[in-house]
Simulated assay, not measured.
Amino acid sequence: MVSHASKGSAAQATAGDQVGMTIAELSRFVHDASTAGVPGDAIVEVKVGIAGAVKEIWIRAAKPSMTVGRLLNGDVPVTVGEAVQRRQRATAQKESEHAASLARKAGRVPVKVAGRAVTGPAPDLVDVLRSHQIEDPRNPLEEQVEVPNEQHHTKEVRRVFAEAGLPITSRGSTLEGLRCILVPEPWNPHDSCAVAVLVGEHQIGHLPAQLAEAYQPHLLQLAGRGLLASGEARIWAKSEGGMVRARATLLIPEVHCFHG
Rank of each mutant, 00 (worst) to 15 (best):
I43K: 15
S27G: 11
G172D: 08
V113Y: 02
L228G: 05
L102F: 06
I134A: 03
G81R: 14
P140C: 06
K155D: 15
D32Y: 10
H98E: 15
L166S: 05
A24D: 13
A36R: 02
T14H: 09
V195W: 01
V160K: 02
H218L: 09
V80W: 03
A196C: 05
T91M: 15
R138M: 07
G49Q: 08
S192P: 09
G242V: 06
T14L: 10
R104W: 09
M21Q: 02
D124W: 05
G115Y: 00
A122K: 13
K94I: 06
I43S: 13
A248L: 01
C257H: 15
K112C: 08
K94C: 03
R60D: 08
K112Y: 11
D32G: 00
K105F: 10
A162Q: 12
G16C: 08
L175W: 00
V30C: 10
E232F: 05
H190F: 11
E146C: 04
A62K: 11
R247N: 12
V183H: 01
T14F: 07
L251C: 09
L250T: 00
I23M: 12
A11G: 12
V76A: 12
A11E: 01
G242T: 02
Q93G: 10
H132A: 03
D32T: 06
V54R: 08
S173Q: 01
R179N: 01
I168V: 10
P217R: 00
R159V: 09
E95W: 13
G37R: 06
E146W: 08
N73S: 14
V44P: 07
R158D: 09
T22S: 15
G242D: 05
L182K: 00
E45F: 12
T169K: 05
P148L: 04
P39T: 00
N139Y: 15
P253N: 04
A83C: 05
K155W: 12
E176H: 09
H31V: 12
E82S: 07
A62F: 11
T22Q: 04
E185Y: 01
M21R: 05
G40P: 00
Q151D: 10
G224E: 07
S3Y: 12
Q88D: 13
H153M: 12
K238P: 03
L251W: 12
V126E: 06
R225E: 07
A229Q: 04
R130Q: 08
I252S: 04
R89T: 13
R28L: 12
Q151Y: 11
K7Y: 11
S9D: 14
L178A: 02
A103H: 09
T91L: 15
G200S: 09
R116V: 14
E146Y: 07
S170T: 15
D127V: 05
L220D: 07
A5K: 04
R158A: 07
L72C: 08
A51G: 11
V128S: 00
S6E: 13
L219Q: 02
A36G: 08
P167D: 04
V19M: 11
V145D: 03
S65W: 10
T154W: 05
P217N: 03
R89S: 13
A11P: 00
R86Y: 09
R158N: 09
I252G: 03
V78W: 02
A62Q: 10
V2K: 11
Q203L: 06
A33K: 01
A223Y: 03
A212E: 05
K7T: 14
T35A: 13
F161K: 02
D127H: 09
I43E: 15
P217E: 00
V111I: 14
C193Q: 15
T35M: 13
L227R: 13
E254V: 10
N73G: 11
Q133M: 10
